[in-house]
Simulated scan of single mutants.
Amino acid sequence: MANDTLLLLALAHIIGDDALRERFLALTGFDGATLRARAGEPDVLQAVAAFLAGHEPDLVAVAAALGVEPGALCARS
């Protein structure tokens, strides 16, 4: 699976979880409208990777939900 696609799936998972969504929005400064408009852009995908890399329990949980290794969510190609 392409890394950008994987990070988009991770973003969808984050947005679908109330606690993760609120923390992601607070830490990144993005809002819902911005994410809808720019979800696939490099800076948003980098923010997803950095968000997950910054908190291992979230990284592991999202990776498990997506069925991938945690390291796959931290690297941007």
Rank of each mutant, 00 (worst) to 15 (best):
A37P: 11
H13D: 10
F30N: 03
R36H: 00
L73G: 07
G16S: 06
A63R: 11
A12V: 05
C74W: 03
R21E: 07
R23V: 01
N3H: 12
P42A: 15
D18N: 12
D4K: 15
A61L: 10
A39S: 10
A53V: 08
L66M: 03
D31F: 00
G29K: 01
A26E: 14
A61R: 14
P70W: 04
R76C: 10
G54K: 04
E56R: 15
R23A: 08
A2W: 04
A50F: 05
Q46Y: 11
L59C: 04
D17L: 10
G71K: 09
D43S: 09
G54P: 01
E56Q: 14
L45E: 13
D58W: 11
A63Y: 09
L6Y: 03
T28W: 03
A61V: 12
L7G: 06
A61N: 03
A50R: 14
S77K: 09
G32C: 03
A39N: 01
V60N: 00
F30W: 07
Q46N: 10
E56L: 12
G40K: 09
A49Y: 09
L27M: 04
T5L: 12
L25H: 00
G16W: 02
C74T: 15
L9V: 07
V48C: 05
A10R: 02
E56A: 13
A2M: 12
A2C: 03
P57R: 08
G67T: 04
A50G: 02
C74P: 01
L45F: 08
V60I: 13
D18P: 15
C74F: 00
G40W: 13
L59G: 07
S77Q: 14
L9K: 14
A72T: 09
L11K: 04
V60W: 04
N3I: 15
H55K: 13
L6H: 05
L6N: 11
V48W: 00
R38T: 00
A10K: 01
L8Q: 14
A47K: 08
E41T: 14
E69C: 02
R76N: 12
T34N: 03
I15M: 09
G71Y: 06
A72I: 05
L11S: 06
E56K: 12
P70T: 11
P70F: 00
D58Q: 13
A37L: 13
T28A: 04
L45P: 13
G54Q: 03
P70L: 05
A39T: 01
G16F: 00
T5A: 13
V60F: 01
F51N: 09
N3F: 01
A53Q: 09
T34V: 09
A63S: 10
L11Y: 04
A64P: 01
G71A: 00
I14K: 00
V60L: 08
D17S: 07
H13R: 11
M1S: 15
G29W: 00
D17K: 13
F51V: 12
E69P: 09
V48Q: 06
L20I: 06
G67L: 01
I15V: 14
G54E: 13
F51Y: 15
A72R: 14
A50N: 12
A75S: 12
A75W: 07
R76K: 14
F51S: 08
L66K: 11
G67E: 05
F30R: 04
A12H: 06
A10D: 07
D18S: 08
L59R: 10
H55V: 09
T28Y: 02
A65I: 05
